[in-house]
Write a protein that binds this DNA or RNA. Structure first.
Length: 571
DNA sequence: CTGGGGAAGGGGCCC
DNA sequence: GGGGCCCCTTCCCCA
């Protein structure tokens, strides 16, 4: 009986346990279901978000792909373009920057028609006659339209119909060149500070290769000479290698001021600026722009007090997208005309040896140096900042809201130097058109356009006989005497004939015995500046050319060559 | 080394 | 305003 009761009790407990267990399971299932539902909702939301993000990503990829395709097209266009023009890419964006207009001016950009080369259009190779729609930035005195002094400046940028976004083009070019390994010479030039004394060079063969060239002052001069630098001072090379950068598009800043205006210099030269000039167009045409940021970052010359403040603003991150620009100033008075000074280090090798107007020349070169400073950083920004996305962004809203405070101040100094006298130095012709690269003033638009080819490397005139290219038609014409054999200048003393008047003039020193170039160290005199320059190397002991056969060193490559021919011709 | 010429780059000026 | 010329300067090369 007791057993029966015990069994019944156990059965009841078991049933109760089962019920409880079932209830627990149900409860658990309910909780799980609820959580699962919530979880599913969350998952679906996440999936939606993922889809949205994926869509955005696809859009971005499409955009990039499209721009890459455009870039490819650009590359092809570039490839069919004269090589000398490619460098222009590097100039773009030079004129970008932040700044403000000095009070009382209103500025706007307006299209202008003129014969200037545009990067996004083919160049007329022969006699470059293509016209292009360009932009001019005009700054008008605010009072011209009853805008009160100090009124905020308005910058409006307009874009010609059908005109491609220059920034876009720049990007494309930069990108196009990005895959091209820069010539060694360029790398060398760009990254290696140029010592004042020449490094030794052993010439292995009769002709120096690019590397050797880049390592010599002489050749360096050549680089500069054929490129953007007008001067040949080796010191300038430090700058010369860095980017003169502006903008080939030849847009112009037109500074119109109906009344004489005094421009005060706010920026002083103590403001350090990374400076640098561009490489020769001859070489930079092959250069990878991508290298430029490195160059610019590694090349600094803070010692140059005469930097152009404009450059600093011009080259800021929000640089304008312009390839070339001219600042036009109606009238500018210059205050505080500081005499042009030249650091001893900057002094060309033959300062003090030269002819009468060499000093002017030096001044001019210095001015150009300043000009090159203008270009300085821009390439770094130009290339560093160029990404495809940015190309599609709104055209530089900073267009023009740059500089003026600084620009026009620096312009004064630059022009002073270039003219050797200053803006108010009695030059009868008003030089309202300023080069955006060096701030040099010119009396008319065409002159400044031609001048800017110095910076842009544009050579629209090509010789049909030898494919050489020239920036000016008269230079082409002069060059063609080489082919025609025409020598219109004859010496009255010896009937010798010359193709250039200057050659005749120089030649006539043979008859007159005139030797205007004298060495201050040994009082030797020379009829030719180049001979003095070469002679000075004797004093300076620069012998960078080493014979690989005997180790003998020479100051000139030609000496080494002669030596090798005479002594080691059998080798 | 020195002397000299060829050729080219660039600025200024004139027509 | 554009073309052309003159001039100066520079680099390269050769004798």
């Amino acid at each position: 009986m007791a057993n029966v009761n015990c069994m019944g009790f156990h059965t009841q407990i078991a049933s109760i346990m089962e019920v409880l267990a079932n209830a627990a399971v149900v409860e658990i299932c309910k909780v799980v279901d609820d959580d699962y539902a919530v979880f599913r909702v969350e998952i679906s939301q996440s999936q939606k978000e993922n889809r949205g993000l994926r869509r955005k990503l696809q859009l971005l990829e499409l955009k990039v792909a499209r721009e890459r395709a455009e870039r490819t097209i650009r590359e092809r266009v570039l490839a069919s373009r004269p090589s000398s023009v490619k460098i222009l890419d590097r100039y773009r964006g030079m004129a970008r920057g932040e700044g403000h207009f000095t009070g009382g001016h209103r500025s706007f950009v307006k299209p202008a028609e003129h014969n200037a080369w545009r990067d996004d259009q083919p160049i007329a190779i022969n006699e470059g006659t293509g016209t292009s729609t360009q932009h001019v930035i005009v700054i008008e005195p605010a009072d011209a339209e009853a805008v009160g002094p100090g009124a905020s400046s308005l910058v409006k940028q307009e874009r010609t119909e059908g005109e491609e976004d220059p920034q876009h083009s720049r990007d494309i070019h930069a990108g196009a060149a990005a895959g091209v390994a820069p010539p060694v010479a360029m790398v060398d030039l760009a990254t290696t500070p140029q010592p004042r004394t020449r490094p030794s060079i052993t010439e292995v063969s009769g002709t120096l290769n690019a590397v050797l060239k880049s390592e010599t002052d002489t050749e360096t001069h050549r680089l500069l000479h054929t490129g953007f630098d007008h001067g040949s001072d080796p010191e300038r090379l430090l700058l010369g290698r860095l980017g003169c950068s502006p903008a080939p598009d030849s847009k112009y800043l037109l500074y119109e001021n109906s009344s004489p205006r005094t421009v005060h210099s706010h920026q002083d030269s103590s403001d350090a600026l990374e400076t640098g000039n561009d490489l020769s167009r001859s070489y930079t045409t092959e250069m990878d722009p991508g290298i430029m940021p490195l160059v610019l970052e590694t090349q600094t010359d803070l010692s140059r007090g005469d930097w152009n403040p404009f450059s600093s603003s011009v080259c800021s991150e929000e640089c304008l997208d312009k390839k070339g620009e001219v600042i036009v100033i109606d009238e500018v008075k210059v205050e505080g005309d500081a005499p042009l000074t030249c650091n001893a280090d900057e002094t060309p090798i033959w300062k003090g040896y030269s002819q009468g107007n060499t000093s002017d020349f030096l001044d001019c070169r210095d001015g150009l140096e300043t000009s090159l400073n203008v270009a300085t950083h821009s390439p770094s920004h130009v290339f560093r900042d160029r990404d495809p996305v940015s190309t599609s962004m709104a055209p530089s809203d900073s267009h023009g809201r740059v500089f003026f405070d600084q620009v026009f101040n620096s312009n004064d100094r630059a022009r002073d130097k270039v003219r050797g006298g200053g803006a108010a130095s009695g030059n009868s012709k008003e030089k309202r058109f300023l080069c955006m690269f060096c701030n040099k003033g010119f009396s008319c638009l065409q002159k400044v356009e031609i001048h800017q080819r110095v910076h842009t490397g544009e050579n629209p005139f090509n010789c049909t006989q030898c494919e050489k290219r020239f920036s000016r038609q008269d230079h082409l014409k002069r060059h063609q005497r080489v082919h025609t054999g025409e020598k219109p200048f004859s010496c009255p003393q010896c009937e010798k004939r010359f193709s250039q008047a200057g050659d005749l003039k120089r030649h006539q020193r043979v008859h007159t015995g005139e030797k205007p170039f004298s060495c201050t160290q040994c009082h030797m005199r020379f009829a030719l500046a180049g001979n003095l320059k070469m002679h000075l190397k004797v004093h300076e002991g620069e012998r960078p050319f080493t014979c690989m056969h005997c180790g003998k060193r020479f100051s000139e490559r030609s000496y080494l060559r002669t030596h090798q021919q005479k002594k080691h011709s059998a080798v």
